[in-house]
């Protein structure tokens, strides 16, 4: 009666120990792999950020009004652009009023 119980306990203990050792080993491997992946990702993120800031700087240089103005001046013949003036800007209600007046004149 005593023996089988003790044997069962032993088997249980040994298997628990093996399983836990095995799982700890697996976890360690996983952690190592993850740490490597994290380092790799961090490196990629840093490189990506670097690239973004380079691109932003480049965009800043390309979008610089001074450069744009020089380009517009050079290609003025094709683009035919001119600075916007105050008289080209109107409120929606002004436009509506103008349309209404126009229609009224048409009816007359």
């Amino acid at each position: 009666m005593k023996r089988p119980v003790r044997f069962a306990a032993l088997v249980l203990a040994v298997s628990v120990a093996t399983v836990s050792a095995g799982s700890v080993f697996m976890m360690k491997k996983d952690a190592e792999r993850d740490a490597f992946a994290i380092r790799e990702l961090n490196r990629k993120i840093a490189a990506e950020r670097q690239r973004i800031s380079e691109l932003r700087a480049e965009w800043g240089a390309l979008d610089n009004p001074r450069r744009l103005q020089a380009l517009v001046d050079r290609h003025a013949g094709v683009l035919r652009l001119a600075p916007i003036e105050g008289r080209q800007i109107a409120q929606v209600r002004e436009v509506v009023a103008a349309m209404r007046q126009k229609r009224k004149e048409g009816e007359k």
Partner: peptide
């Protein structure tokens, strides 16, 4: 002026004339 979103204002009849052109 246009860049700073200052709304240009004109005397009344002038505004209508201008709005027609813009529209």
């Amino acid at each position: 002026g246009p860049m700073l979103h200052v709304e240009p204002r004109f005397p009344n009849d002038d505004a209508i004339e201008r709005a027609i052109t813009v529209a």
